[in-house]
Nucleic acid binder design. Structure first.
Length: 269
DNA sequence: GTGGGATGGGCAA
DNA sequence: TGCCCCTCCCACA
């Protein structure tokens, strides 16, 4: 489930198990053999998440860049290693812990310069303290593109994917088809605060749930899939608030879902 | 058993 | 905009 919260959660969990330790690395699947050899036996300083990107710092300006893409997944655990299945791009191990990476879009060695270039083309990340949302707003307010598309642009905001863009726009009562130029500064501040809150909850719970206000903890235990979202994957179903049929359409190469009544253009929150 | 779709993004055109 | 990458899961047979 790789939007920003998944990646930040992975960084947190992997730091706990691997940071500061010498790592054994291999690429059983074979597509990262040379890279794995470069980091094998080296101490991992830290894992950092920026938007949907992970950067593993092995010191001496040697980094590993991982992007999960749509299919990538981590599995992790305490030794001994669980039975493996499928194609493993990268496996990391210490005496105590193991980590497997399957199906990533990117798993590659980065120099300090490549790292710098990557970070330079990412917008502010709601999950990183010190991010400057004004940078994103300046881009949005100057663009005639639709807000629903702008939120998916990682150079404008880093870490939001299709589920969060649909849900955040619904929660803010913003029409996804409205041009960026029409977004009021106070609406952006509200959306950004909500993004920080909802996504941080996603990191804590290691799952996406957007259907309750963030200032109230979600009830413990499993939330039925059907109840996790307001609009995402709910095409044709009634809006939870007004009952209007949820609609869907292609936008920015993905399917966006929205309530045509709650998110009517010009409608105050 | 199978085929389509999925929370992403780079690239060509 | 569409194609490709390339993995897992679920609805449907």
């Amino acid at each position: 489930m790789p939007e920003g919260h998944t990646v930040h959660r992975a960084a947190r969990d992997q730091n706990e198990r691997f940071a500061g330790k010498a790592i054994r690395a291999e690429s059983p699947q074979g597509r990262f053999i040379e890279g794995a050899a470069l980091i094998d036996e080296r101490p991992l300083r830290s894992v950092e998440a920026y938007g949907k990107h992970l950067l593993y710092d092995f010191g001496d300006a040697l980094f590993v860049h991982v992007h999960l893409g749509l299919f990538g997944k981590f599995r992790m655990g305490a030794m001994p290693q669980a039975g493996e299945r499928g194609l493993i791009r990268l496996r990391l191990r210490t005496d105590d812990d193991w980590l497997e990476l399957r199906g990533p879009t990117a798993c590659e060695i980065f120099t300090a310069e490549q790292r710098r270039l990557l970070l330079a083309r990412l917008g502010p990340d709601p999950l990183r303290s010190g991010s400057r949302p004004q940078r994103a707003f300046a881009r949005i307010a100057a663009s005639r593109s639709r807000i629903g598309a702008l939120l998916m642009d990682q150079s404008i905001v880093a870490g939001i994917g299709n589920v969060y863009r649909c849900e955040l726009l619904y929660r803010a009562r913003i029409d996804p088809f409205a041009a960026g130029t029409t977004l009021a500064p106070e609406d952006w501040r509200r959306l950004w605060r909500d993004a920080r809150s909802v996504m941080a909850q996603g990191v804590r719970d290691a799952r996406m749930v957007t259907t309750l206000p963030n200032d109230r903890p979600h009830p413990r235990g499993p939330v039925r899939r059907e109840e996790r979202f307001y609009v995402y994957h709910r095409s044709g179903k009634p809006c939870r608030i007004c009952g209007t049929s949820i609609r869907s359409a292609a936008m920015a190469a993905r399917t966006i879902y929205w309530c045509p009544s709650c998110q009517a253009e010009g409608k105050p929150r």
